[in-house]
Design a protein around this nucleic acid. Sequence first.
DNA 1: TAGAGGAATGTTACGGGTAACTCAATAGTA
DNA 2: TACTATTGAGTTACCCGTAACATTCCTCTA
Lengths: 351, 351
Amino acid sequence: MKNNKISLAEVARAAGVSKMTASRVIRDEGGFSEKTRHKVMAEVDRLGYLPNRLATVFAGDKKSTFVGVSIPELGNEIFAQLLEGIDRKLVAFAHQTVLGMTEHALDQEEAWIETVLSWQPAGLIVTGRSHSPRAMQLLKGAGIPIVEIWDFNSNPLDMCVGLNHFDSGYSMGRYLGELGYTKFGYVGTSHDTANAASSRLAGFTKAAEDAGGTVKKKLLLKDVPGFYTGLYGTEQLLAAHKDVDVIFYQNDNMAVGGYEYCRRQGLEIPRDIGIAGWGDLPIASIQPYRLTSIAVPHLRIGQIAAEMLLAQVNQHPIKRTRDVGFKLIPGSTCRMQLKTDIDEDIDHSKT
Amino acid sequence: MKNNKISLAEVARAAGVSKMTASRVIRDEGGFSEKTRHKVMAEVDRLGYLPNRLATVFAGDKKSTFVGVSIPELGNEIFAQLLEGIDRKLVAFAHQTVLGMTEHALDQEEAWIETVLSWQPAGLIVTGRSHSPRAMQLLKGAGIPIVEIWDFNSNPLDMCVGLNHFDSGYSMGRYLGELGYTKFGYVGTSHDTANAASSRLAGFTKAAEDAGGTVKKKLLLKDVPGFYTGLYGTEQLLAAHKDVDVIFYQNDNMAVGGYEYCRRQGLEIPRDIGIAGWGDLPIASIQPYRLTSIAVPHLRIGQIAAEMLLAQVNQHPIKRTRDVGFKLIPGSTCRMQLKTDIDEDIDHSKT
DNA sequence: TAGAGGAATGTTACGGGTAACTCAATAGTA
DNA sequence: TACTATTGAGTTACCCGTAACATTCCTCTA
């Protein structure tokens, strides 16, 4: 475990050339003879020389190939996939992801932004559009491309790709209202910071009221938005409000958990209660029922974010905001449609 | 979007002191007056100075606070959680994760290792124990702490934490054999490289043979190891081999998908066929049935890996290998036990 | 064969911090 | 008062590559 860091100078000395010549050979930028190339490359291999990229970036006053990517949590599969989409694209263009998990906390995001900026990244991709004042200031002054993702925002700091979560919540609320539901419930997880899920809830609440119904109970749990949280959250919600006739969940995983709770209680769905999720997550594809949900192109968000960032890094012109939309998926976990035909009205997908 | 990078020299000039004095104040290393501290800090705030950590690392010939973390994929929730555990711990100790997704390909891992080493990281955490020859060489010569995780290996390059996947597969095979199963099936995903899942399959196969049974079919799909893959994989497997009496899946999510396929086909579980998963994933907690599986402390693996690495970085003595073990979970998706009482035999947990 | 021009290679300076050392000013002591 | 500590602050050199410029060595041509 000895640190045998070999520098360019050592390679050059071993090859009997100047640092500069060795540098030219290694970067293959021409201006050297074939004989020299052989000598240098032989020493590179023999000594196991690895260039020190810190020095390169530092020397050239260039940007590094780091891209800071912040997401709230990895336990939430939708964010894990977002990150996967981003990293794939970045790697394909020789950039590296420096991870930042904010855990939905603005102060953690701020601390991460400060740290990652000190490494001179080529750009930043941050989830969400609410940031602390100091974070905003840091981002604005960074002088590098910044992409805000997830929650669409027509007036971003720099660039933005995502969808309108408020609208998606509103769509679901209106849809459920049109099916005749009036006593709504919501089960999600809570954080100190307003995030995309809170926007969905706000939209949902608005739609519920517009439809003449009420959200009887908004249950926000201090937990991860997963299967089991959905199950026990539903128990809590129904214990307090037995008359709720449909429950909207923060995501499909929670909804599937909620469905299972209802089933265990002998409730029949959708006869006794309606269940609606969000995200059209993989679990929905293998249930005995078709979950009512909202489909979101989350992989595409990640890819587009990385593309926008790379385009900006390379000074290619690009549209700075992208609303990827969403699509309501009527399922069998809510009662059949009662009032009007709304098929043509439910696709908010913007390609 | 102007790049207004402020250097230490500018702060120093503005404050009317030398670079060195400004540096001392900013690092709070003493040797300056209160008056000077005020002058300097005032300029830091006014100019929005952010230190350039590249320069610091570069100058001091020190290690950075980067830690390279490679995992095969993020779509697989078990790896996402592994990464989450690692990043939490690293961040708590002021280190940053540089992500590497290898997609189970040795050449991608190798390329990533080379790149990440060129950034002078403090250490590396890599998933799996098989690496390309050049990758091995790079890792050995890196002179920094390296932790191999996931697949336990008593003779690691440097440090290792994980579990014995072969044994976990063997345990499941033996358990199923003891329940009287003889015609085994396996559904998983395939990759060019031998990985932990292949070790499990190897162990499973060995146990099946030791028990006098056979693995009728090993189905390896080119897909992600998720719910739907399990569903259609089961369809394929049963289409080819109707007489299989129990199926072992690469993970619980695939098993749940397989269960759903069987249900749709009118098969009753465990009467008509047995289902066994691996990982004790969250989905298992909310099914109407208790899935037979193997529980693995994957979050702990991540935490321990980060702890080992940080201990090594700080030159604290530490045990260099840790086998976290696993635990077989008998469920209701396999037939009840027939032969002997094996309860005391199934816990391979090593705390 | 001198001179031009290009190819190959070398030299110097620099980037943004910090270690190690030096120097100046102030305070304390006999 | 003269001398010594102590404190505060400045100077210099260096980390490892690369840009920009300088130089050497050929080769080819008139």
